[in-house]
Every structure is written in structure tokens, then in C-alpha cells.
Amino acid sequence: MENQQVGSIHFQIDFSQPLYEQILDQFRSSIAKGEIDLGDKIPSVRELAQALKINPNTVMRAYQELERDGLTEKRRGQGTFVTASKEQVDHFRHQLAGKYIESFILQMENLGYSWSDIKTYMDKKHLGN
């Protein structure tokens, strides 16, 4: 696991996992959590690739996906910026939360838990913590 600080953003890169997903996930969560402010500039593809020692194509692919998420926007000649719209980030966050819950429920169902089992299990877990 390699830790890297690039500008204001902290990255943890694990070379035993696909790099594209790590970069994408770390950006998504930093933006969703508000670690990167709305409207902030993010590092250029070259800066990030050099800091993390990874292929610029990989960074570029992750940046394209962030743009499709609506989390960032490119400004001609200036670089890439986090969207200034809080609604956009909230929307993305809700979408992602929905996806996580769906996949969680699916996995639990595959283990043979019913919805009421899952609820009981989660209540217990919540109280336990």
C-alpha cells in the first residue's frame, strides 16, 4: 500500500488491486464526503500520474468516468474542476448509496437471509457497536 498526498488530496494505492477503480473510488468518496470542496481544481492527469507513478491513460479513464458521474467538469485551457453544484454531488451520493444497499441486500439474500433477518441482523450490529 502506497500513501501519497497530491495537492490537498490523499491517495492510497494498492498495486494488488486494479488501479483504475481505486482512483475512481477515492475521488468519488473524497468528493461525496466533501474532502475536496465544491468548485476546487483537481490535479492534472500528468500531475496525478507522476505523483502516483501510474499510467496516464489509467488516470484519464478515471477522470472521464468522474465527468460522466457529473462530479467534475473540464474547463477549456484551465483543467478539471469539481462541480460547483451541491445538488449534483448529493444526487450522486444518493445514487451510490442506493447501489451499495442493493448489492448488500443481494449478497445477504444469496446467503439465505430474508429481509426481516437482515433488519434484525442490522439492528443487532448497530446496537452492538
Partner: peptide, 24 residues
């Protein structure tokens, strides 16, 4: 990295010092 961004090429690199460069 700097130079890769500007061109479409195939670069073959042999090495046994994999750790530092495997991200590329």
C-alpha cells in the same frame, strides 16, 4: 509519463525492478 501523454506509441520495457514501475 510526461512524454506518454503526447504520443500514441508502444513502449516495451524489460525490468526486474517491477515494484516502482508496475503502475505504468
Amino acid at each position: 509519463i510526461d512524454y506518454l501523454q503526447e504520443r500514441n506509441q508502444t513502449i516495451l520495457i524489460s525490468t526486474h525492478e517491477i515494484h516502482e514501475i508496475e503502475g505504468l
